[in-house]
Amino acid sequence: MTPAPFRFVLVGSGGISRAYAQSIARLAPAADLAAVVSRSGRRPGGVSDDVPVFPDVASVAVPFDGVALATPNGAHREGALAAAALGKHVVCEKVLAATRADMDAMIDACAAAGVTLAVTYQRRASPDNVALKRLLESGRLGRVFGVDMEVKFYRDAGYYGSAAYRGTRAMDGGGAYMQQAAHNADLLCWYFGMPDRVVSMLARRVHSIEVEDHGAALLHYPDGMIATFTASTVCRPGLATRLSLHAEAGTLVLENDRIVLWRVEGIENPTDPNYAVHDGATSATVSDTAGHEAILRDFIEAARTGREPLASGRAARDATELILRIYENDLLGEVFGGS
């Protein structure tokens, strides 16, 4: 027997909410959009008028199984705690939250309620990223001694002016690292764990915002690996994300989650040539929702079976923790005060 659709309440009506609405529609009949939560009363683009709108999660008056949080980072805690209090599962747009206190409150509330908490770190589902993860776990690449992660995007003034919360400490929680490079922070943590030493230099070079628009970090890991991690929204015209990895077996490079260079001895290039990922180099608009669909499909199965989702709340916490350490160890002290 085919299970009933997983009924989502979509929390938020801003730009990213449209990607969630489209993803839920494309997962039918496995998923269904039961309602929208929007303080403004607005529906996301593409959501039909027969989907009811409520001002908050607690007031939703239709049956539902879980929420998809598509609100700014600073509002994730409120939505997650309200859903957990009702015994509903939670999938959250990245990042989990922008502070340690908010993340821990969300994780604890969902654990106490016995509900699944997942985060949309969809790059964990990209085939070449999965292939690299497996190679690292197998040890076939040998000792990895150097990694360079580059997130050199461009955002114009119109992006930061499109919503009052953009570029603020209270709601965004940070700039290029927290907003644009969070997926890449998650990949670094997924692949290599947490560094034991972090130093960084952060700056506001172009945009009139509260947080950084450009920065570079140096990460040292317990096994001796050294990584560089650059994040920016001022690199005109915006470049593809790039991960370079240097190991005993050789060198490989990924751009936008695709292996574009493979110089590794004794191992066949595992790239999937037919896969493409959303390129956020020049725009925050998500035109390809395949990654979101993969996360929601995984989330539904995890919620129904009780297994861990691909990016659980506890796992996703590491990405924000890494970013917070980058902020706290800023040698310049121009943006967050340094340490």
Rank of each mutant, 00 (worst) to 15 (best):
R123N: 10
R123C: 04
R123S: 09
R124H: 02
R124A: 13
R124D: 01
R124S: 08
A125Q: 12
A125G: 08
A125L: 12
P127S: 13
P127A: 14
N129T: 10
N129E: 09
V130F: 02
A131Y: 03
A131I: 09
L132N: 08
K133E: 06
K133F: 13
R134L: 10
L135N: 00
L136M: 04
E137S: 05
G139I: 07
G139Y: 05
R140C: 04
R140N: 00
G142M: 14
G142N: 13
G142W: 06
G142K: 15
R143G: 09
R143W: 06
F145E: 05
G146T: 12
G146R: 14
G146F: 06
V147I: 12
D148G: 10
D148P: 00
D148H: 08
E150S: 04
E150I: 00
K152I: 01
K152N: 05
K152D: 04
F153S: 01
Y154V: 02
D156K: 14
D156C: 12
A157I: 07
A157E: 02
G158M: 12
G158K: 12
Y159K: 13
Y160M: 12
Y160R: 11
G161L: 13
S162A: 15
A163L: 12
A163V: 15
A164Y: 04
A164I: 13
Y165M: 06
R166I: 12
G167A: 09
T168I: 04
T168G: 01
R169T: 08
A170W: 03
M171Q: 10
D172G: 07
G173N: 10
G173D: 04
G174C: 06
G175R: 11
G175W: 11
G175Y: 11
A176R: 15
Y177N: 11
Y177I: 10
M178N: 05
Q179N: 10
Q179S: 07
Q180M: 12
Q180N: 13
Q180W: 10
A181K: 05
A181W: 02
A182C: 15
N184Y: 09
N184L: 15
N184R: 11
D186I: 01
L187F: 00
L187G: 03
W190Q: 02
